[in-house]
Simulated scan of single mutants.
Amino acid sequence: MTISPDVAAESTRTPRRQRLRHYAMTPPTFFTVEYAINPWMDISTPVDVERAVAQWQNLRDTYRRLGHTVDVVDPVPGLPDMVYAANAGLIINGVAIVARFKHAERQGESVAYANWMDEHGHHPVATRHVNEGQGDLLVVGSTILAGTGFRTQPQAHAEVASITGMPVVSLELVDPRFYHLDTALTVLDETTIGYYPPAFTDDARTRLRELFPDAIEVASTDAYVLGLNAVSDGKHVVHPAQATGFAQQLDRAGFHPIGVDLSELLKGGGSVKCCTLEVFP
């Protein structure tokens, strides 16, 4: 009997298993682009707040339909980027490392999120050096991948390792369009990542290929719509809908891609992952 290529590919896929997650999100009630601190931001481009809120609600509801817990953090007037909750910090191993932002425009978010963490029993702690939370600190298995080059300072990586007791792998970014690690790399499960190689130094690419020989390498077309700014529960991968090539790669690898439209929030330089702070056990 002849087996078609599609059936053969299906039969060799790695089984993927969902693990229910706990997320925190902040609605874009006060979202606007009134300053430019990354290449995606253009203060001359109008923002449709009503549409941004509707897109955000769809993302929140998608997580809940998948069975995940979503805590909603109250937005604060005057902090338009607070919707990008991933940058708030890193909550893991019983502690919450609060972000220390590089840019003055975002520093008020540290106070708002530290208050929320404290109210919810997450024991917030601060670093001496700049760290921008899960924007640059991505947990994969028992390791933290840590970005640097544009926002988080490399000295913060050692602080994070000391606070969490977890090994930290430093990865340097070189393309300002990918100013946070979560714009150029996504964690798909405990052993699998997707990433955009040109966003990294040669040394970082070598390290990633050593650690993740089966990684999904994404093309420029998908990277340039922040397609890697995605969230996975180990089986379902919620990603920017415009990243159709990445969706096909995920499907071939045995994941279930779910595209969502966050085009309004892309105007501030963020998408799915930027809007999602994972609360680890």
Results as ranks from 00 to 15, higher is better:
Q57W: 06
L59V: 10
R64C: 08
R64M: 13
R65P: 04
G67M: 06
G67R: 04
H68G: 10
V70A: 13
D71P: 00
V72T: 15
V72I: 15
V73D: 13
D74L: 14
P75F: 15
V76A: 12
L79K: 10
P80L: 07
M82Y: 08
V83K: 11
Y84I: 03
Y84C: 06
G89W: 05
L90P: 07
L90R: 04
I91V: 14
I91M: 13
I92M: 13
I92D: 15
G94L: 09
I97H: 04
V98W: 08
V98L: 12
A99W: 04
R100K: 14
F101P: 00
F101K: 07
F101D: 02
A104P: 01
A104T: 07
E105W: 05
Q107P: 00
Q107F: 01
Q107C: 03
Q107V: 01
G108P: 01
V111H: 11
A112W: 11
Y113N: 12
A114S: 15
E119Y: 04
H120D: 12
G121Q: 13
H122L: 15
V125K: 12
V125Y: 13
V125N: 11
V125L: 10
V125A: 10
V125F: 12
V125I: 13
R128G: 08
V130A: 05
V130W: 03
V130C: 08
N131G: 01
E132D: 03
G133M: 05
G133S: 06
Q134R: 07
Q134P: 11
G135S: 10
G135N: 07
D136F: 02
D136V: 01
D136H: 02
L138I: 03
L138G: 05
L138F: 03
L138H: 04
V139I: 15
V139L: 15
V140A: 13
V140I: 12
S142T: 15
S142P: 00
S142I: 01
T143V: 14
L145C: 02
L145G: 02
T148N: 06
T148W: 04
T148C: 08
F150N: 05
F150E: 06
T152P: 00
Q153C: 00
H157F: 09
E159P: 00
E159V: 01
V160Y: 04
V160D: 02
S162H: 13
G165K: 12
G165D: 09
P167H: 15
S170Y: 00
S170L: 08
L171V: 02
L171E: 07
L171K: 05
E172Q: 11
V174A: 07
Y179W: 03
D182I: 04
T183S: 10
T183K: 02
T186G: 15
L188C: 07
